[in-house]
Design a binder for these strands. Structure first.
Lengths: 227, 227
DNA sequence: ATTATCTATAGATCTATAGATAATGC
DNA sequence: ATTATCTATAGATCTATAGATAATGC
């Protein structure tokens, strides 16, 4: 049942205690929301996983929706910021000739590295985001936190493909983000389909393939339609 | 509130009435589940949308999970069957030289056409599937209903790419299905990102681009890693 | 004194079942 | 007679708030 981290009550200052408990609540909520969604998790579930009383959820986070938003907001600036820096670094180093593949490496690999290096908590956040992205509740959260970095990517892609009409770039991004979210979700489907030859939590395997795969796709956009 | 179809009680035979009410329940459930997920919908929501009493949900469908599964099962054979036929037809006509793009056209375009031509109900089913695919509850449903047609696609892709190791094909499919599910979900995100230049319910636009985009991606798989 | 945590509880739903009613079926 | 639909209701949760208790802070 309670396979989560049980709080040890080695008490320090109130500020520390406050911060620690909040983090534990966010960790537990992140884990549960990532698997079961906003409506599939009760505040009692979260409290139980932390080992505290349900009402503490309300003490620290006004209500369920706020807790959900707080889970999103905790790590979003980290992933967003890292990708933004990587894109700016790439832009500077590519000068007048950025490539689609270069931009996608900066965007995708930077993000995947974060999950690869960040351990279980970050993997849970990744799955949480994938779920959120698919959800009406989550749509605005995505917009608010990730629009800037996505538009930055798009702006580089436009410069890399000056002859490709703008909507084509957005369609390309639409495909990219779908594949990325499917990766982050780690549903296990590819494992079963491939009889274990691929594993859905093998982010390094995705990282090795994805930017190049998608870059090739972009090169087909804006061509005369075949039909 | 009740923007759904309100049942007109023009009574016919019991068998007809039974079938009609079941369809209405499935339609309402499909609509609501596609937007809010299993846990985000109550049986009362569904009943209200149909205009009947909640207990009728239990009369026709044992419990909530069964209703959810029934929504999936109602249309799955249609999309699966159509794609299977299209793949077999393509296989026959391509003879010894199937192409990745040809197989993907058969797989993707056939599916997208179904939603394009099928009206609102099929669009709801598409969104329902997208949501299900991202969900622990839905994972086995996907496996049960869609494995055969996906494995058929994979088998053609293998013949089209005889020098590409098998796991690469599965990774390619992983990317394809992510993009497809992101399309079916119609979250509206691409609309907002692109300031209206693209629309997430514009399936014809996706159909025009997707098979070719993904086919180009497949051609990069199995190459020596760049790093 | 302040604040982290718990106890008690209100009020609202939600799922599910048993049994009544009102139609259709012969 | 059979069956589609509704009424009544049990039992379980769930969210959220008010107020008590037990720690830390000076």
């Amino acid at each position: 049942m309670s396979d989560g981290a049980v709080a040890k009550r080695v008490r320090r200052s109130k500020a520390e205690q406050r911060a620690e408990t909040q983090e534990q609540i966010l960790d537990a909520a992140e884990y549960l929301f990532s698997r079961n969604g906003l409506h599939g998790v009760t505040l009692r579930d979260v409290a139980q996983r932390v080992g505290v009383h349900t009402t503490l959820m309300h003490y620290y986070f006004q209500d369920k929706r706020s807790l959900f938003a707080a889970v999103f907001a905790r790590r979003a600036p980290v992933t967003s910021g890292r990708r933004m820096e990587a894109l700016e670094r790439y832009e500077a180093e590519a000068g007048d000739h950025p490539t689609v593949e270069g931009a996608l490496h900066a965007f995708l690999d930077t993000d995947l590295d974060l999950y690869i290096e960040g351990g279980e908590a970050w993997m849970n956040y990744a799955a949480f985001c994938a779920r959120v992205s698919n959800t009406p509740e989550g749509a605005e959260l995505m917009d608010v936190h990730f629009d800037p970095v996505v538009l930055k990517l798009v702006s580089i892609l436009k410069r890399a493909l000056p002859d490709t009409p703008e909507p084509e770039i957005f369609w390309g991004y639409h495909f990219v983000t779908g594949s990325l979210m499917n990766t982050l979700a780690r549903t296990g489907r590819i494992d079963r389909l491939s009889a274990g030859r691929c594993q859905s939590d093998d982010f390094p395997a995705v990282k090795r393939r994805m930017a190049r795969f998608m870059a090739a796709g972009f090169s087909t956009l804006g061509m005369a339609p075949a039909e």
